[in-house]
Design a protein around this nucleic acid. Sequence first.
DNA 1: ATGACTAAACCTTTTAGA
Length: 262
Amino acid sequence: MKLATWNVNSLTVRLPQVLDWLAANPVDVLALQELKLTDDKFPHAAFAQAGYNAQCFGQKTYNGVALISRAPAADVVKNIPGFDDDMARVLSATYPLGASAQTLLVVGAYFPNGQEPGSDKFEYKMAWLDGLRAWLRSELQTHPNLVLMGDFNITFDDADTWDPEGMRDQIHCTDEERYHLQALTALGLTDAHRLFTQPPKSYSWWDYRDMAFRRNHGMRIDHILISNALKAHASACWIDKTPRKNERPSDHAPVVVELLVQ
DNA sequence: ATGACTAAACCTTTTAGA
């Protein structure tokens, strides 16, 4: 089965591209971030027409996440239980793991940006990361098959940015953020991207400005983390830069993981 | 160079993103 994540930066603008991408890439679950629309504006009919189920957790103007899937979702949870949040950032659900009787828990997340170290938004990002980790630690006890994917807004290390010196201690690249990302992996989650040989300078986001995509001035901030039980089944992981070449692209590219399961 | 580009909204200006 295939799972993917994509920050679309407005589903209203990007819906045609999402439908085109799904037609060319018929994944089992697609997590979307930055819908920038409310639930009542979510295009359920378009996804149903394409043969997909959709769960939505929207918000006006900012944030908003969705899970698009072939199989119906169960056990749908919005945001992080135990962490009060007035923003729509997390949507989780369970699905059948392939054709097996096992269950897969998918957590789609739009991590806070954090704006600038020392800012209120950065403090919120740190608190949010604490809350996410505490919740996932407990979820892993009951869901050994777990995928955490989305826009993490954090680089693992300097290999994930085109300009390590320029970005040093800047947002997405601070030691504090990277500590939290490592702490998530310490729960028993693995960066699927680095399980496989990847093209050098692989990024998932490029600034709209300064011809950044053409110059490959990007960062890898969109990730798929898979639990230990799933790791043995992972067969491939890639970043699909194709949609970033569209006329009116999202600034992020989709990331896909393939799992070989019965 | 508190810039550039994109999107949304309280829309000719601000806020946020990353």
